[in-house]
Design a protein around this nucleic acid. Sequence first.
DNA 1: ATACATGTTTCATTCAATGAAACAAGGAGG
DNA 2: CCTCCTTGTTTCATTGAATGAAACATGTAT
Lengths: 234, 234
Amino acid sequence: MTDIKPPSGVLDRGMLLLSLFSMERKRLQLRELAELSGLDKATALRLLKVLVKWGFLEKNGDGAYSPGPANLRLSSIFKATSNFISRIEPPVARISARVEQTTSFFIRSGNERTCLARDHAYQDFRYFIDVGGSVSLDEGGAAAQLLFAYTEAETPAYAATKARGYYISRGERNKHFASIAFPLFESDGSFLGAVTITGMAVDLDNETLISFRDIAHAEMAMAGFEVIPDTGDE
Amino acid sequence: MTDIKPPSGVLDRGMLLLSLFSMERKRLQLRELAELSGLDKATALRLLKVLVKWGFLEKNGDGAYSPGPANLRLSSIFKATSNFISRIEPPVARISARVEQTTSFFIRSGNERTCLARDHAYQDFRYFIDVGGSVSLDEGGAAAQLLFAYTEAETPAYAATKARGYYISRGERNKHFASIAFPLFESDGSFLGAVTITGMAVDLDNETLISFRDIAHAEMAMAGFEVIPDTGDE
DNA sequence: ATACATGTTTCATTCAATGAAACAAGGAGG
DNA sequence: CCTCCTTGTTTCATTGAATGAAACATGTAT
């Protein structure tokens, strides 16, 4: 089952090890890390020692590894750097409260989308990735389609999404859910990412989703963001 | 000024680059990173590309690097893993409310101390590092002295601190502030880190600080922590 | 137009990374 | 109690990935 090809660079391998951790896999032992990464036990062990030394991982009493406090440190710097996060959190929370559905904000980083802010209206389901979590854009979903439309070369489909101003997905990632995603722009018109409202498909027909988008538009505008591109405005 | 000796391992060097960022140095450009780390420009550049690729750094429009969203991801896993943080936050907040001063909890990681929890009684001053932030232990302060006492080889001074059970600093890091730090232990007696109460020096004579420590002791004990080592008890 | 600072690419050399294997340390089960 | 199996750790000869000096590119200030 070790048919994975590990990256060639040492630093790449180290980052790969870090990236193996997720909310579903919070604690991993040497054997698992070696298997998942495709690295030799000895190699993984040496890399892990370095990561522990710098506090990016910590070794628990039972020998399992888990993310360490250094991540907290860098995360707080990241948050401070992107004053953006503190700006986006309040409107996301208000939208979530008003539409009583889960509201999220995603950016594209590489070929993944990363959740920078999220507010759960209901805590019921664990389907959602947490803040900071990423999923491949290839897995689809409303947010993925929207991020593609605004960050890939123009195609007829993408142009249609941009003209429409939103993208609705039903059961694309999970058959029970429906989502509407719309773009968010900085006040200077630059594209930021995708706001997504997600809930149970049975509760949300398209008309309802579009009305939610209008509510979200209003909240985001109040928070100083643009919800339609600056071009052609007026 | 490039008399720094970079670590030998590639992964070490990469982690070094990450560790150069701080709340005071949120954004660094290639030249600075190369100088601070002692690495060759070309070497640093290659490492940085890898770190950017994995989202641990991001390259801003002006070419400067800053921590990226991957840190957010791992940080959220770290928080979820260390149930510890959720345990320490409530008593820290209560202490802060009762003594009406800023209360923090620090752990030692490497030669720095990292703030894992903090509650500002007053929002007035921006002197304090944020949660997740680190400062070198060599910069001193009550927390640093206490962490040294419990994690370094025993010296007469450290033994005295441990016997006393607290450390008071006045103007050690900033002349206007005074702090009292005391150790925190897990219920099994293992050392965790330093609780610190900090405020304006003019408001806080030693007697007051010691009374604050008693209040903090009580709150921490109620939260299930030990405030005196298990050894020699009863 | 020139000088300077910073970032990027190239390439021959070398040293750090590698992984197989041996070793150590439990735990499970007969 | 002994044996087998799993997991973690150390060792060491071999190799290839990392290195850094230098050339090159780009941009900015003078």
